[in-house]
Design a protein around this nucleic acid. Structure first.
Lengths: 347, 347
DNA sequence: GATCGCAGGGTAACCGGTTACAATGGCAAA
DNA sequence: TTTGCCATTGTAACCGGTTACCCTGCGATC
């Protein structure tokens, strides 16, 4: 492995000159620079990033710390981040807080000294716990999380207004009795969606205590809700599930019980997972541009790293958009073949 | 940011002793070690990884270079890798070869000096091109790719036998005229699947030139194939698509044309994407344990890094398993609610 | 012709760890 | 009491870049 000394010797110059030539400083003559670059190519020299980060006090790397994520949510976030990072010559160091608080602390600590900044998506644990682990000297942007009392910039999805809009749309479609299937109680997204639903019901339909069934974002909890509805204990002509997964489970169970969607009952979800458009009937849902969550956060971090004094606790709120499909009567009964993202190089 | 010198001063010892205490060397007395660790905690000291990698000549980081990937394939691979890496205290540096050969070279070069080893999943470009960019001194494991002439260890999916088995199953179900929808011509997975199909047809059904329609792994190309079939130009009672995406497009188009699946025609795919089990009828396909692709490769790399002289060009072949569902008459006509992975913390 | 200014380039001191080698001191053996 | 050995600890030289500072030599100026 060639070092800068090797390159300097090969080019017949000093290490200082070699370093300057390589980094494009102005005080090097054309011929000298050419000789150095020739030596670089000849020796296949690549600067040792560790040594470099020692003196320059930066690593050109940002740490990305995510909770346990599955499916496309994970890949889309990374894609969004990578897109921006790549343009700026930044590298991504991946860290996973495997649920536990202890792991979170470890993941953050492990990043110290390796990265110039951090993108952190906190799990559902009490978020204030994070403040103890985060290094105030390390620029950090929070993902999908309202920093609240923490004085940090963040990017989040406007779950509240998304849920409000969806509820409003269901009512506009003529629904009289809308039931909400909630997500996990400790989940911030879930709580915001529930609030949006409840407020819309109160303001628009003058219903002060709308029906809310418990759920945990799993298909099974959607199916359970369906069983309650089928038993007729709860009159409903529309169901707004806090996420698409539950809507999927709900619809399957309703179909198994002979109920027609949207004929007997309308259904709506949240997230617009890829499966949503392929259901039969296709699922009305709120679309969240997940990759933008990542790219926006990365852009904010870059601005901070460049020294722009991004107002502390500045935030970007991404608004989800409503996609009306079959389960609210908006689409055809057959499988809809909308334009779906191709799977790429992968078979 | 505290340095080792600070810690040493705080604990009243030399930097050597501090370093030894922190790294758990044996030749440090209990009290001394305790004093150092107390100082570490007090100063919130975290060793600078750059400085460390300078002397230790290792970074505890592995580079992961993937092509442009979408959806769960990407996340499952990373999940598999992370699982193993995490156990061994390794970090993951992400790199994306955005398609072009130039980007690939850049991605690999950027990793030099930052990582102890490399996991590379080559895109569809001529794989031998890689050999010029890879550093022979850097342990490298190839993902989902038969190293062929390159003398590198790799992990791959047995596409050939998977396709062979699927074709065999279709024939066993009574199909007489099986049509294959191929993937991109330059794609290795696609070619292997096509070979498996052709060989099975030749050996089992004594059909020497089975019908093969062109495709590119996209839904649309599946739909196009369906149109050809509906026009009746090509008699067929079963279709084996080279991937699930195409099968999805195919089924949608067949349904739109009033053809019944599996009544009029059976359909099978490959990959077992999450959508497969939710189709109506659900899709028969070959299941590939994508996360195992990642974890296996990472384990191989770790063994190499530990100095085990893994036989050069050693390989692990992962065998996909057949999942019989509705589109080959194996399941019910309604949406099947199999156990699907929960979306995790994500809404 | 002597002085000055400045551009090009060299020397060496860093950055923050690790570790070879040297030094110290305590205790047992002679 | 002296010597020797071993366990601990300290000193300083690295690892491979970057850059402050100094030196050289040139043409321009007086």
């Amino acid at each position: 492995m060639a070092t800068l000394r090797d390159v300097a010797r090969e080019a017949g110059v000093s290490v200082a000159t070699a370093s300057r030539a390589i980094n494009g400083h102005s005080n090097v003559t054309g011929p000298t620079k050419a000789a150095v670059l020739a030596a670089v190519k000849k020796l296949n020299f690549v600067p040792h990033s560790g040594a470099r980060s020692l003196t320059r006090r930066k690593t050109d790397t940002v740490g990305v710390i995510l909770p346990d994520l599955f499916g496309e949510f994970f890949s889309e976030i990374i894609r969004g981040i990578d897109l921006v990072a790549h343009e700026s010559g930044m590298h991504l160091l991946l860290g996973n807080m495997h649920g536990s608080t202890h792991e979170t602390a470890a993941a953050i600590a492990a990043m110290r000294g390796r990265v110039d900044g951090l993108l952190v998506m906190p799990p559902d644990v009490k978020p204030e716990l994070l403040s103890g682990y985060l290094d105030p000297a390390l620029p950090t942007v929070l993902l999908n999380y309202d920093a609240g009392s923490l004085d940090l910039p963040f990017v989040a999805v406007d779950n509240y207004h998304g849920a409000y809009a969806m509820t409003e749309a269901l009512l506009a479609r003529g629904a009289k009795q809308v039931v909400h299937i909630a997500g996990p109680k400790h989940n911030r997204d879930a709580r915001d969606r529930q609030r949006g639903f409840a407020d819309a019901m109160a303001k628009i339909a003058q219903v002060q205590s709308p029906a809310i069934l418990p759920g945990d974002f799993s298909e099974e909890s959607g199916a359970q809700a369906a069983r309650l509805l089928v038993q007729g204990r709860l009159p409903a002509d529309a169901v707004f599930a806090a996420n698409d997964q539950m809507a999927v489970g709900l619809i399957a169970e309703l179909a198994a019980s002979g109920m027609s969607v949207p004929g007997d009952i309308m259904v709506a979800g949240f997230d617009d997972i890829p499966l949503a458009r392929h259901l039969n009937p296709s699922l009305t849902t709120m679309q969240v541009n997940i990759d933008r969550l990542g790219s926006t956060a990365m852009m904010m971090l870059l601005r901070i790293l460049r020294g722009e004094t991004l107002a502390a606790a500045s935030a970007t709120i991404l608004t989800p958009t409503l996609v009306a499909r079959g389960t609210t009567g908006g689409g055809a009964g057959s499988i809809m073949v909308e334009k779906a993202p191709v799977l790429g190089a992968r078979a």
